[in-house]
Amino acid sequence: MATTISTAPRRHFSWVWLGLTPFFLFAILFILLPSTSLFIDSFRDGQGNFTLANITGLTQSPIPESYWLSIRISAVTAIFGGILGFLLAYSRASGNLPRWLYPVTLTFAAVASNFAGVTLAFAFVNTLGRTGFVTAVLKGLGLDIYGFGFNLYSFLGLSLTYMYFQFPLMLLIMVPAIEGLKKEWREAAENLGASTFQYWLRVGFPLLLPSILATMLLLFGNAFGAYATAFALTGGRLNLITIQIGAQMRGDVLHNVNLGYAMALGMVLIMAVSLVGYTYLQRISERWLR
């Protein structure tokens, strides 16, 4: 009797997938399902009927202004936080800093990039608020920052507060990117007659540019989604889109949960665009720096 031998490879269960299970569960429960619910509820009224009123409501004042304010503050802190973080990462990479500064800067960055919310707002109120410690010291030295028009509870003040967690995040991501620049590229450029400036202008900086832009997009998203810091610091004085959504959800005065969902959907779309840009730029960077 002829026997048949199966040549198809047997599929073995891989334990690697077990490690990924929490991630997929998390993504489904807290990203996919809420986003789907958000999308559906954005097109419903309070009674659950289909409506476009929430979407058209996004064009009603002050919602567009809130989006614009959030975009501006996110862009400003992403750009300046990005520049500051990059310069710090570059200084570290140059190898000319005192040795003790290397672990100190990284530890600070790791802590500060996660230090946001009420505690951060409280820290800034205590230092740069009207009666803050730094404000008082500066005043004692003859520099009255509030007299010069500075206000912690303004666009500038909130931007400064956001910078506290923005530039450390830039530093954390840029350090490995700068370290990924091969020594041979610099030597090859030098060997071909390039000065240090020419190397950075034509090789080093263009190679880092996708990483820099990608991380700035990440910083943008980081600031765009921030709520607690802004709310704790300014109350309702700065109408960021996250504060607007909070107001609709809590229902203190305005209570239209579905309009809140529509606003959140707008945020998700803006964040999604940032994420697509980030992924694209990271792919270029990985291809170059691998």
């Binding site: 041979e184 450029a189 060997n191 090789v203």
Partner: peptide, 15 residues
């Protein structure tokens, strides 16, 4: 120095 050098890892500029 006006010396040309070829590296083991090629060292071509990827950008």
């Amino acid at each position: 120095r006006n010396i040309g050098m070829v590296f083991q890892s090629y060292a071509l500029f990827p950008n």
